[in-house]
Amino acid sequence: MHSFIPPERFFPYLTWTDIQAMPDKENVVIIQPVGAIEQHGPHLPLIVDAAIGVGVLGKAMEKLDASIPAYALPNLYYGKSNEHWHFPGTITLSTATLTAIIMEVGESIYRAGFRKLVLMNSHGGQPQVMQMAARDLHVKYDDFLVFPLFTWRVPHITKDLLTPKEAALGMHAGDAETSIMLSILPEQVKLEKAVAEYPPEQSESSLLSWEGKLPVAWVTRDISKSGVIGDATTATKEKGDRILESVSNGWVQVIQDIYAYRQSKVDEG
């Protein structure tokens, strides 16, 4: 049931008495992985985002010093994936449903006495949902510290392993995701079906982009026939192993930082 998560770090394996007796609960780090079940081209399974999140978190928790109390909640497999719903197999929650789930999970964690919750999101279509839910939880519970983090935002070497074009335009099911899946779940990757497909280029004179500071709202079928946005043909397990090692190292650091973090208050006097 714990998948890649070390069993001693898997929250559901605790008893209620374990939790009741846990010391310094306000600084224990509780991590909610959030993924998606959505198309990732003809070569990758629907589980990619969920698998990457749990794979990275599991590797990070293996490396984490045993003295730092941190526990992983069960992965939330479904996310807001309606940009991919024209491709069969994609399962999506609405923004309202996903927000409600995050809020109610957070409230349950708070009631148990914990005060630090990480939303470890691995799907690029829902960071804003995590951010809004995190803010609402903190507004509702002033002493609840909620961290809406994206799996790929910690320091890592991935872009150094990609071509400049892939680093700039690869957004979905390309080299990085395919490589790390070859490391995490190699038996589920159909590399012989991998394709390279990039989105249509914006005008050089335009300030707009598909992603970035001035984005256009799009769904996947607007910019890709295969469901791939990038080059999956250049993926290798060797790259995937290095990416997994690097990203998980970043997560060790961020978990340590969150454990050490203390809420700041501006003096109102």
Rank of each mutant, 00 (worst) to 15 (best):
T233N: 07
E197N: 07
L162W: 09
H43E: 02
V247D: 04
V118S: 14
S226M: 04
I258N: 13
M171N: 10
D222E: 02
G106N: 03
N121D: 00
L64Q: 15
E245W: 02
P69K: 13
S67I: 12
Y261N: 06
G113S: 04
G58M: 10
I243K: 05
L191M: 12
L76C: 13
L191F: 08
Y13V: 11
K159T: 07
G79D: 00
S203G: 12
L149R: 10
V254D: 04
Q39W: 14
T158C: 14
G89S: 10
D241L: 06
L117S: 07
G230S: 12
A72F: 13
D49H: 13
K165H: 13
V56K: 09
L185S: 03
E245G: 00
P12F: 08
S248D: 06
I258W: 04
G240I: 08
R262Q: 10
D231S: 11
L76P: 05
A176M: 11
M22W: 14
T92E: 05
D175S: 09
K159N: 09
L244H: 02
V266N: 12
V189P: 03
E62V: 14
A70L: 15
T15D: 00
V154E: 09
T151A: 12
L145R: 13
D241K: 08
V28N: 04
G55E: 06
P33G: 10
V34M: 08
S205E: 01
M103A: 07
G124K: 05
T236W: 10
E38Y: 03
L137D: 00
K265H: 08
P199T: 06
S264A: 06
R135T: 07
D160Q: 15
A194L: 14
R153C: 05
E8N: 10
Q128Y: 00
E187I: 04
I52T: 12
L169R: 15
Q253R: 09
A96F: 08
R9F: 15
S224R: 00
P7W: 03
A194I: 10
D241T: 03
G269H: 01
G230T: 05
D24M: 11
E26I: 00
T97Y: 01
P45T: 03
F4P: 06
N121V: 01
E38L: 05
N249V: 07
M171V: 13
L169S: 07
K63F: 08
L76R: 09
P23H: 14
M61S: 11
A60H: 15
L161V: 07
H138G: 08
L98H: 09
K80L: 09
M181Y: 00
P200D: 06
D257F: 15
H138F: 10
F114P: 12
K239W: 04
L191H: 11
K80D: 02
M130H: 05
L185N: 05
E26K: 02
T90S: 11
A176L: 03
W210A: 06
L117D: 02
G124V: 04
Y110H: 07
W16S: 02
R262T: 09
R221E: 02
N121P: 02
S209G: 13
A173K: 01
A112Q: 06
H172L: 14
G170F: 12
E201D: 11
I101S: 05
R115S: 03
D142K: 09
